[in-house]
Each structure stands twice: as C-alpha cells, then as structure tokens.
C-alpha cells in the first residue's frame, strides 16, 4: 500500500484514504462549444498513459477531501512529489 503525502494536510497517509483521479493538468475548456469534434474527443478520452513519470490527480477523500496532483513513476510506483491543485506542473 502506497504512502501518499497530502499537500493540504502535510501528512503521509495510507493509500486507502485516497481516491485516484486520472491524469492531471487536463483543464476543461472554457468554452466547449468552440471546440470541434476532434478537439472535444481529445479532451474527453485521450490520455498520455506514459511509461515513467506520470502527472495524476488524487483526492484525499477520507481525509481533508481536497484534490491534489502527484508525479508518480508508473514503472516503480514511486511518488516523486505531490502538490496542490492549481500549482504549476512539476
């Protein structure tokens, strides 16, 4: 079980307190109606799925309830860092 550092609680907590939220830094378009079908498909469905560093969202659902971002290596499962939602990509 992973230990995950919640950047809001500033605590290492067990994975069971968190819920995974998919790839991070995919902003909802401000005006979806301006997007063509291909662009909208890309926003809805297409994800990077990298081997290695992956920016992803987690929510401390059974703790503070906040969403935050993590950089996790998808090969080793080591979480390099976590940071608050809205902060720049690391």
């Amino acid at each position: 079980m992973l230990l995950i550092h919640c950047p809001y609680c500033d605590e290492d907590r067990a994975e069971v307190e968190f819920v995974y939220g998919g790839e991070a830094h995919i902003a909802r378009p401000l005006d979806p109606s301006a997007l063509d079908d291909t662009q909208w498909e890309s926003y809805l469905y297409l994800r990077r799925n990298p081997r290695g560093r992956h920016h992803e969202r987690w929510r401390h659902t059974y703790g503070c309830g906040r969403f935050f971002n993590a950089v996790r290596d998808t090969v080793s499962d080591v979480i390099e860092t976590t940071y608050k939602a809205g902060e720049a990509r690391r």
């Binding site: 819920v19 939220g21 909802r28 659902t61 939602a85």
Partner: peptide
C-alpha cells in the same frame, strides 16, 4: 458529491 467537489475544486475554484 464527489463529482461536484471535483468540478468545484479543480475547474471552477
């Protein structure tokens, strides 16, 4: 509730 929190926290803060 989780879906609402997601939009509120991450899209429409």
């Amino acid at each position: 509730l989780a879906m609402m929190e997601d939009y509120l926290q991450t899209e429409w803060s």
